[in-house]
Design a protein around this nucleic acid. Sequence first.
RNA 1: GGGCUGGUAGCUCAAUAGGUAGAGCAUUGGACUCUUAAUCCAGGGGUUGCAGGUUCGAGUCCUGUCCAGCCCA
Length: 493
Amino acid sequence: MIEEVKLDEKESRLNNRKKLRELSINPYGYPLPYKPNTSVDELKLKFQDENNFNKEDIYILGGRLLNIRHHGKSIFADLLGVNHKLQIYLKKDELNEKFDIFKNYIDSGDLILAKGYLFRTKTNELTLHILDFHFLAKCILPLPEKWHGLKDTEIRYRQRYLDLFINHEVKQNFIIRSKIIKFLRNYLESKGFMEVETPMLNIIPTGALAKPFKTHHNALDIDMYLRIAPELYLKRLIVGNFDKVYELGKVFRNEGISTKHNPEFTILELYQAFADLNDMITLTEDLISSLVYHIHNSFAIEYQGKTLNFNKPFKKISFPTELAKKGVDIEKLRNDRDYLEKISNELKIPKENRVISHVIDKAFDELVKVDLWEPTFVLDYPVEISPLAISKNDNPLYAERFELFVANFEVANAFSELNDPDEQAKRFLEQQKLKEKGESEAHEYDNDYINALSYGLPPTGGLGFGIDRLVMILTNNVSIREVILFPALLPKK
RNA sequence: GGGCUGGUAGCUCAAUAGGUAGAGCAUUGGACUCUUAAUCCAGGGGUUGCAGGUUCGAGUCCUGUCCAGCCCA
């Protein structure tokens, strides 16, 4: 009497792989007996309304098998493409031994090359009638549940590859992300901007108010920093006589991880010589609204159950005016220490952070930002938090700067770039003073940048976008982790 | 950094008041040549995140710890 061997799922899959090898079939594909001449998605699109098929038209396509349905002497299964799946159909009386190989040794998740002709089943499902197939790769690990999918967020992020092919809708976020990035590049190229790459490894981290990641160059034996922004390098290029440049890439900020912050994220920065803040407003409105239309075929979209309208022009408000409406007087914060303490108490700002720049920033976030739903330009930023922007002609305490807010997110930041080297040097020194007073996110002094400005930077408009947040808004996601393929997580022990 | 919630079979989830840890899907064996969450029959599968503690007895209570999610700083 033969004792029945009970195999668990992984053992069974490994056993099937072993059996294939015993039959001299390579479970991993090489060499390919024939190449694909189409794809699941191509066939699905091409034949979505077609009902007449020619058996002479032979299609060869690769894909992952899911949901295999055995019916004795016939088998149905789904072949997974990028956006679609295609049903395949096998009959024993046509495939003979190959049918048995499929029946006995194929597991869900396996990758195969399928060859056959198209027909429609009586339930009208477009189906590939299989004449031959070839193994491409064996899936030796069990798959998540076919109906409920993979819900565990930890596994979804750590093993994104599983998330992508099990939870079909997840892929859409990343397809849209790619479309957005492609659109931005096309848009800027069409306006005469040139894409450049500047260093990610910096001697001094500059261009933003943020904490950097520190690293070390061994051969030079110096500390270096991952960039927190490409800004100062891009403006050096304008000094170098380029007139329209942009960079699209990662920046790194050593801050908390949350649904809205990933330590590395994607930024778009552009600089246009002989332009100013108003040109950046016009560009931003046009760029964002055409992007929204490109993705959604409408200027109005839904985000978290509420409407966002991207019709030009966007709403414009003034930073000090809005804060004044909420009872915070920036002038008084600058000149009256008791008042600053009072506001700090109201905002629960810790003692060590009670610096003018921090209090202004915090007050805006707490009191104004929370109400900014529709696309809104906030103008007239205080100089204390705008060390790289030119001052307004009529009031040097405020900068020619805007931030664009959408759905309570800051999505863009722009200024008329400060191009007076003496004034820039003074601003850097003021930032050092703030740092001494306890502002941990003050701008570093960059001597070489002052040197560059000393050769003459023409009046320049600069603009930066947070790409991840833009993608979140356009894909209706509240967590940045849903739009970053491999978000930062702590290592699993 | 703080608070709250969670972690149980490959996956999705149960488990009354502290009393033998269950189901569906997946998987294994069998039947089935138009199914699509296929169906029908029969099985196997667990160190309940980890380390301690209380108890005759812990998935459940306590302490610590790790990871995740949400909120706050």
